[in-house]
Write a protein that binds this DNA or RNA. Sequence first.
RNA 1: CGGGAUGUAGCGCAGCUUGGUAGCGCACUUGCUUCGGGAGCAAGGGGUCGCAGGUUCAAAUCCUGUCAUCCCGACCA
Length: 481
Amino acid sequence: MSKNKQEFVAHITSKEEDFSRWYTDVILKADLVDYSPVRGSMVIKPYGYEIWENIQRELDQRFKATGHKNAYFPLFIPESLLKKEQEHVEGFAPEVAWVTHGGDEELAERLVVRPTSETIICAMYSKWIQSYRDLPVLYNQWCNVVRWEKTTRPFLRTLEFLWQEGHTAHATEEEAQEETLKMLGVYEEFSKNVLAIPMVAGQKTEKEKFAGALRTYTIEALMQDGQALQAGTSHNLGQHFAKVFDIQFLDKDGKQKYVWQSSWGVTTRLIGALIMVHGDERGLVLPPKVAPVQVAMVPIAIHKEGVLEKAQEVFEELKAAGFRVELDDRDTYSPGWKFNEWELKGVPLRLEIGPKDIEKNQVVLVRRDNHEKTFVPMENLVDTIKTMLEGIHESLYQKALAMREANTHVAQNMEEFKDILENKKGFIKAMWCGKRECEDSIKDQTSATARCMPFEQEHLYDHCVCCGEKAKHMVYFARAY
RNA sequence: CGGGAUGUAGCGCAGCUUGGUAGCGCACUUGCUUCGGGAGCAAGGGGUCGCAGGUUCAAAUCCUGUCAUCCCGACCA
């Protein structure tokens, strides 16, 4: 190990020493983002954006498969529209950006830069929906939104962020509820099978629900530092918006009725989740399904006769097989340098090919997650890699699940609750009476919030962890991003 | 929005106390030799010191303001 190596590695702060700094170091060094001249707004660089594109593609397929279509609604929303739904405007008003002028002229009516699009979409639905035959409306849009946050962190909280928002309208309450849960299920399945992140799925408390919703459902993930991250939400909007935006249809029975609605979304924050769930001391660890590069090929002794030619041959074969593969033929870096760089960038598999391998008709594969090195014959290389990538996905998921389980604790009372937060961190499972006062009190005392009331309820004990009265729900609490 | 810290070359930093022609390591460029865990030698290029004022013969250095980033709280995907 040279002194250069020590210096280079030292550029990433240790996770144990300072998790926040580790996170910042990793996203910058791995070239995912850069800070921009605009406060709180990041530039997503190609390597980071490609992760988002992969997330988009996987989710979009799932949306289409469940009958949704993409559309695009305006960035600007007239003030009067935002203000129609009382709870909604109260929830979002403190963090909207206003457009007050067009050129030099002051606008007759101010516009908000969308913080979310319920209002503008409902205004259009009101116009488009006349009959039960028009229902359900199942639209989604991929776009950016703006929320004027006080403090920001790349991917986790920025003034502007990218997301998708699904907005649906249904004839019945049952259908809207079914849709709300179905899409949360899509998120949960996607998180498991694409991001390799286990989620706790459940319902938000009244205090934590979306401004204007009837009920909010959520998927919550646990980061390696013991903090929770809300990864996606799905809202049953009931008829709140339908009534203020007058979205009515003539039903089969000849009666005018208001539609029932849902909305649901996930954001670029998912990339933050990926980093904080899977990353290690060497940098990013990306699940194969979203990794911009799945296989990084490092030829050894490039200048030697036949090495680059053989590497190119293998490269073409892997590319044709559908892998996202990169042949690192830069002659300015040594193999060792490249190994470290691709590890920092989280590439799931490294493929080494050198004169000795060519002689033996084999290649060397090294897994990013456990650093396991295997010599594999050139025959069936495509199948071997396919199997190995699947194995990496599976073990990333199992590792994340084990991490979450090791950091999920039961608190019987507030002393235990505080003790866990101080000494162990992570998720706290506790029973709750359902009263707002207890939820507020827990937050005041511990800064932990109710993440969700999981669908998989467990009866841990009878009393509320806070007030001691009869408990109604089992709740996951945690400090959250 | 409160408390703390930091802004000097692409990155990491020194210089500031005690004002006097801006430095180091890595990276970058060119050439040659290297190549199985962060290669070597040689020659080069690059900074109005975050920004704006002020003090001074003279400001990276002292003063005021401002902007941004990071950390800790309150608020939020």
